[in-house]
């Protein structure tokens, strides 16, 4: 009997999710274009050296982490553009911060920024990091990353796809400051 009730609820109950907003899927060409642009920017910016990224989770849902992880897989292979993740902020040029900054990780984010050699670019990845996302105003979060440390590049999306991350990074680095 319980199966009948389960299916009843599933099929005839109230809708609890919204239809996904379909963003135009990034193609291989988009990734290649963004990568070429990044490589050109890096050749200028860092004298041809690669760009070292430290990912900092400030309380995300791990959706952004999965997308960042995907950057390293065989399909996107972002290391060919001169980017790589490092294990310590001491080695990093860029911090990629994800998630609305939850109160328990505020100090960790601050000390990470302090531990990184300056000048250090901070990239807010995802809606949570850019403006607090759906957690904005909650008692448990501080809010957007720029309320804790200075943010230089914002990549919105919930989560942004790997291609969008690459495009956002290229656009942010290219922008004259």
């Amino acid at each position: 009997m319980s199966f009948v009730r389960l299916f009843q609820t599933l099929l005839t109950g109230p809708r609890v999710t919204e239809p996904a907003a379909l963003s135009p899927a990034a193609t291989t060409d988009d990734v290649g274009a963004a990568g070429a642009e990044l490589r050109a920017v890096l050749a200028n910016l860092y004298d041809g050296r690669s760009l070292r990224i430290r990912a900092v989770d400030a309380g995300s849902t791990n959706a952004e982490e999965l997308e960042l992880l995907a950057l390293g897989n065989a399909y996107y292979d972002f290391e060919r553009f001169g980017l790589s993740f490092v294990a310590s902020p001491r080695h990093a040029d860029i911090l990629m911060v994800t998630g609305p900054v939850v109160r328990n990780l505020e100090a960790a984010l601050r000390t990470t920024y302090d531990a990184a050699p300056h000048p250090c670019l901070v990239v807010a990845v995802g809606d949570g990091a850019c403006n607090g996302g759906i957690w904005r105003g909650s008692y448990a979060v501080v809010g957007a990353v720029d309320q804790v440390i200075p943010v230089h590049i914002r990549i919105p999306g919930d989560p942004p796809s790997p291609a969008e991350i690459l495009q956002g990074l290229a656009a942010g680095l290219r922008r004259p400051r």
Binding site: S88, P89, A108, L109, T111, A115, H118
Partner: peptide, 12 residues
């Protein structure tokens, strides 16, 4: 040089 704390992985 800039004085900074020992890197502690965010855990004091």
């Amino acid at each position: 040089t800039r004085r900074s704390h020992t890197w502690d992985c965010g855990q004091p």
